[in-house]
Design a protein around this nucleic acid. Structure first.
Lengths: 197, 197
DNA sequence: TAAAAGTCTTAAACTAGTTCATTTTTTTTC
DNA sequence: GAAAAAAAATGAACTAGTTTAAGACTTTTA
């Protein structure tokens, strides 16, 4: 059977952890929804209940919350081969506090809550896939939150550029500031300072 | 069969997500090691490779790293019914950067890396258990790191007291400062300020 | 139970990052 | 491709939290 581009990408992603038969592959693909979002459009907005978890086949999105003063705090930039969504809302069916907005035209594959539950019944191997996926996320999450600690803003900026060279050029300085945890004004100062070095 | 206190606790913890037969329970327990740590003793030190993941049956421990200046940053306080360890080191077999130190005499159950792998072979249900455990950790991790954002130190202190009333009284003000992310001196100021309110 | 070690408090001088206001540059839209 | 909107740069005044230092209090240890 011929899979389309985005399906090949997600199957490769899954193949990192589990092997699927041709039939299982087709079954899995049949449980996914194709979603397109134009630049500046929202995939999710605060107050909604997260209906899907997404795999990004193409594009770039930012995941963020707004604090009491209305200032954005970006928790991740999601690009090709990443998973995104709000797992808390997806699992508990409570309203999300996140916005997910495309910063480029993007193509995603989404799994609904119903199909997610079905997946484990139909292909129990996926328990293992998600066990490993969540374990990895947890590790990188813990690493990230621990790494940033005791670094000043300049060091965090340099670390980000080093760790995500592919992302730096695809996002605005403003959004990077909202991710690093400083004001856009201070980000501007940092950049001109670092470039002068 | 009669299980001892700590075994009952861990079986209850597991029962939140999966049902085990009597035989499976015994098999599971047989894969666990009993570990006792006296107050001030280390369960883990930076440089070592994490040999176990631990369940806490009794006591209190702090998990922390030291930054370049030798200042401690506490990432969690672990008490009864919590899991702890360094999952990154446990999985990758790279040396840990963490210290885990008992702040009270403590009793733990540990699973070794070999037995962890064996567990999934012997009782595949545990894929589901860990999938759900990691999912939950991920959710609370994400929530925590997102919640703290844009709160000042006083607000973070108040939030901690509210969220972990059982822990506050069991730890020093110094350790709380190392968790909240401020100096002990500033913590002292905050507390006298909050108490005056 | 005395000494040692660690914790807490207080205060003055300091600094990384914020806030606010204005101008310039870049990107988007029609 | 001109007008509007958003992003970036720059600078001065400000503030939350740090640093350093020293004395008082508490807990641990022998």
């Amino acid at each position: 059977m011929n899979f389309k581009e985005s399906h090949i990408l997600i199957l490769n992603n899954v193949a990192r952890f589990i092997d699927l038969t041709e039939l299982e592959k087709q079954k899995y693909i049949s449980l996914l929804a194709e979603v397109k979002v134009k630049k500046k459009a929202y995939l999710m907005q605060a107050g909604e209940i997260a209906q899907y978890e997404y795999f990004i086949a193409k594009g770039c999105l930012k995941v963020y919350t707004l604090d009491e003063d209305g200032a954005p705090h970006i928790s991740m930039f999601a690009i090709e081969d990443y998973w995104t969504g709000d797992m808390a809302s997806f699992m508990t069916k409570e309203p999300t506090r996140y916005f997910i907005k495309a910063t480029e035209d993007s193509e995603l594959l989404g799994i609904s809550r119903a199909n997610y539950d079905l997946l484990f019944q139909e292909i129990p191997k996926f328990e293992r896939f998600y066990r490993k996926l969540y374990q990895r996320s947890l590790i990188s999450y813990i690493r990230r939150s621990n790494h940033g600690i005791s670094l000043d803003a300049v060091e965090r900026y340099i670390a980000f550029k080093k760790k995500y060279p592919k992302i730096v050029n695809r996002i605005t300085q403003r959004d990077l500031a909202a991710y690093i945890g400083i004001t856009p004004e201070f980000m501007s100062k940092i950049i001109s300072k670092v470039n002068r070095m």
